[in-house]
Design a binder for these strands. Structure first.
Lengths: 244, 244
DNA sequence: CGACAACTTGACGGGCGTCAACCGGAGTGG
DNA sequence: CCACTCCGGTTGACGCCCGTCAAGTTGTCG
């Protein structure tokens, strides 16, 4: 543990994309007593059905929420990246209704729920910011419901790419039009309610019509306007505010 | 306005299904200054894209959230009934990312956002209860994502019936195994990502295999266990707690 | 009794699932 | 350094679930 400990700076940046924080707020967040952990890919951080424990901050890396049917099918609910808070969704609930798992190497910070509660009492403005964060997550769920219900494969995958590109760029992870997907095609299939085979076909179609280029998992958006049109993408649901 | 004004009692009952409220909390809620309104079906209460205004409590009646694609397709995000709070989802956000509309006659109470904010500052326990309420809504969104992505038409419609029956029964609206659907088959289609035609076929299939009976919009669950099995229904996601 | 919305049913077609190979790169052990 | 394994990706053939189109039927409200 000689390497520098990652702190909650990415989380602060994330919150500041939709909430104004004071210097005091920032320092209170940074002062939170938390347990750092560095984990590999495919690690289960929260397990569906478990009692809710500490609150997990994803400081660096990629993760995803998912839940399964009794007959073993898996549905991914959302993807997460640097600065996202992974279980505010369970903050006031006794039992986890879904699981959270890493996609890549990741730096985590675990904070006790009582510490979070105390922080929110101490800094009402921060409580607001956290609440707002969960509401934005819920808005993303709603957009995914629209995707799954009313968009075809081509549109849905394009939409996922647009969302990931936009969120990455906001989180200052690389460029908007060229990035590496952290997930396999099977993850994409589980996120879009499709099969791997059809994900593959659809990615090929998007490539052939000139919207994107791919080399292994690297995606190059060749024609952003066209991709947005195919996706019917309107970033309003991300509630990024007027500023960057 | 000579008829008795509906108060927020159904809302209190709803909150108490997952949060413990003190006598003080209850009276503070009831003392909220609000504007009562009785509206008919198909009234738009919140419009996607509008700035967020007052907070709407659905005291009696049915409503639903929805959003649309640019090419005019509609997706229903959730259904709501007596006691549900309709736009906590927008409480901390500047702009509505979806619309809310009534399904039936309804009694509403509109409360200013600043009043809500003051209430939450006054009664932290109530703030908790409201926050918890939004988290339960988010959990329902997640289950719907699973439905849309990974369950077939038969299972999905059965799941919707199970959810409605369970929530109605918790809200003390009639019995669990016999109730009237407040929505048309087109609403069901927009909620499950299907077409009206296929909703109709699927309802017939559920009837023919003896799971339910229907007379116009009245549904009689003939075999609850079988319907739950078809639906792969596990009410944990509703976070109803151990008690009723 | 006419108008209109909701519901119902049948015929047909397509988007996507299923099944089955095969490929290619990364890790591993001899 | 090469064989082996394994996981992820890729492609083709075939079929089904559900969308589409079209035509009734029922119920309700004027």
């Amino acid at each position: 543990m000689s390497q520098s400990l990652p702190d909650l700076l990415p989380v602060i940046r994330k919150l500041e994309r939709s909430s104004a924080l004071s210097e005091d707020d920032r320092s209170k967040l940074l002062a939170l007593p938390g347990r750092h952990e560095r984990v590999g890919p495919a690690q289960v951080l929260i397990r569906q059905g478990d009692p809710v424990g500490d609150c997990c901050f994803l400081v660096r890396g990629f993760a995803f929420r998912h839940k399964g049917t009794r007959c073993g099918k898996r549905q991914i609910i959302s993807f997460h990246m640097d600065g996202d808070i992974l279980d505010l969704q369970h903050l006031k609930l006794p039992q986890a209704d879904h699981s959270v798992e890493t996609l890549s190497d990741a730096d985590l910070v675990w904070v006790g729920r009582s510490e979070i509660e105390r922080l929110m009492k101490d800094a009402p403005n921060l409580a607001d910011a956290l609440w707002r964060d969960t509401l934005v997550d819920a808005s993303i769920y709603r957009e995914w419901i629209l995707n799954l219900g009313r968009r075809n494969a081509r549109s849905q995958i394009a939409h996922l790419l647009c969302e990931l590109a936009t969120r990455r760029s906001c989180a200052d992870i690389g460029e908007t039009d060229r990035f590496e997907l952290p997930m396999t095609q099977e993850h994409i299939a589980d996120a879009t309610g499709m099969t791997v085979v059809h994900v593959n076909r659809t990615l090929r179609a998007l490539t052939e019509e000139g919207a994107i280029e791919r080399h292994s998992r690297e995606v190059h958006v060749r024609d952003w306007a066209r991709l947005e049109t195919i996706a019917d993408f309107d970033p309003a649901y991300l509630h990024l505010g007027s500023g960057a």
